[in-house]
Design a protein around this nucleic acid. Structure first.
Lengths: 249, 249
DNA sequence: GGGTTTATTATGTGCAGACATAATATCCTC
DNA sequence: GAGGATATTATGTCTGCACATAATAAACCC
């Protein structure tokens, strides 16, 4: 089962916007609408012409206009309501999409070698805040995993995870060989999740594990996931300094 | 719609009302495809049937299947390529969408009062890293703005911005009254942007401005935006402790 | 006037058919 | 067999048309 030929997408330098090759079809319509908004022909809060009218103006089918406007609405540029029509968003929010890969791939994607140290694995009663976050009864037994992820042999990420043991198969996976996250994305369907990013000073323990001075600023990711209404896992990731979560809009 | 939706309600016992009202149309197809992936009927990396085949199976038009599969591809669950077909993503990335509102609305959205202190405004030659980020010649004159944003009168966010003065109208806006970001989203079209999140220890200056102890971990957002190929602005936001960037998937 | 019902209307979604496009598979030539 | 032209094929998109849905506007009644 060979891997799919790697998508030949050169990693673009983050600071170089490219000239767009005049689009056609629904993308042309999207571009034209965007242009009119930017040119302040259609002001924020104003209602723009109906799909029908635009279709006639552009000489295309209403479905094509619909495609373009729907895309802009998803991007937060337009607000659409049945009967009320389509308006230019009054308070445009920048809507960015983040790709959150598995840590191993993130490290390998930088051309570094990936390593993994399972520091702790134990079945413990869930601490109150964790149980509350996941919506479980306090002291529900959960699998507690502490893992240090390495990039080129150096500490990259310290992961503290609480995992619902009910989801594991009988011969439980060897989390010293495959990270819990990687095993989960491949084996447990998830429906809803919850992600928060923040910053925190390294605790004495975190500093020791990551090989840093205590108090170093760490980038923190916290995630909870559920499959339907069943809690899957809660995890806290503390990244070594230098980590940047990056996205383009 | 003949032989398929098999409305779960009709077939199952009346005593089990599903929380989500069984979707219909293209969303039902999306749900069914997701279900098959989660049920490991279609394994990661495997090619799933063609749109045509699925349309026949579900008794709907190909366009409807297309809508569902396209949605799942945008969500990162499927990978689609012409001629090659549609595959279950081998390395599913969690794709989260972030809404990044204007700071004033972010503060007001928490029910706090918003305030703004313009600490510095000067036309200065762009420092090398800033010029490089924006793709400008070194020492291009840029408007340098330092702003402290307040929530309920307490420091919330310290903003350091470099702004292309060519974009400003002749009577330049009063950035002591309206934040540069808020003015920009309303008046300058942007096409591409670039956002990075990280963590950093507060410098002595930042600590003083934000009223914190030096070294406190700060959540940092850095953004660059362009309008076409013209640089608009580069900005660094340092959030006071407690800030969390949050999203649900 | 105030409240409820009904009509109107823009968007949301559906269908069938068609052509465009890109990537693969195949055949042909050397 | 290697390399290149060609056929095949699954997805991408477009067109008309139809009906569903939701939210507003109008009509209506008291």
């Amino acid at each position: 089962m060979p891997d799919w030929p790697a998508p030949v997408v050169a990693a673009s330098s983050p600071a170089k916007p490219l000239p767009r090759p005049a689009p056609q079809g629904w993308e042309a319509i999207r571009a034209e609408v965007l242009h009119r908004i930017h040119a302040r022909l259609w002001l924020p809060g104003a209602t723009i012409p109906t799909e029908e009218a635009l279709a006639q103006e552009f000489g295309c089918a209403r479905a094509t206009v619909n495609r373009a406007l729907r895309d802009l609405a998803e991007a937060g540029v337009l607000e659409r309501r049945r009967k009320a029509g389509t308006r230019v968003a009054l308070h445009p929010v920048r809507r960015a999409t983040l790709d959150i890969p598995v840590t191993r791939r993130e490290v390998e994607g930088r051309g570094q070698s990936y390593g993994l140290h399972l520091l702790e694995q134990a079945l413990l009663p869930a601490p109150v805040p964790v149980a509350a976050q996941l919506g479980l009864a306090p002291a529900t037994p959960l699998l507690h995993l502490c893992t240090l992820h390495l990039a080129d042999g150096r500490p990259f990420l310290y992961e503290v995870r609480w995992l619902n043991p009910a989801l594991l198969p009988d011969p439980a996976p060897d989390f010293a060989a495959i990270s819990a996250n990687e095993w989960l994305v491949g084996h447990v369907p998830y429906t809803t999740g919850d992600i928060a990013f923040s910053a925190a000073n390294a605790t004495a323990h975190e500093a020791e594990v990551l090989g840093l001075a205590p108090g170093t600023a760490l980038f923190i990711t916290e995630r909870c996931t559920w499959s339907g209404d069943r809690a899957i896992t809660a995890v806290r990731l503390a990244y070594a300094p230098g980590y940047r979560l990056h996205t383009m809009v």
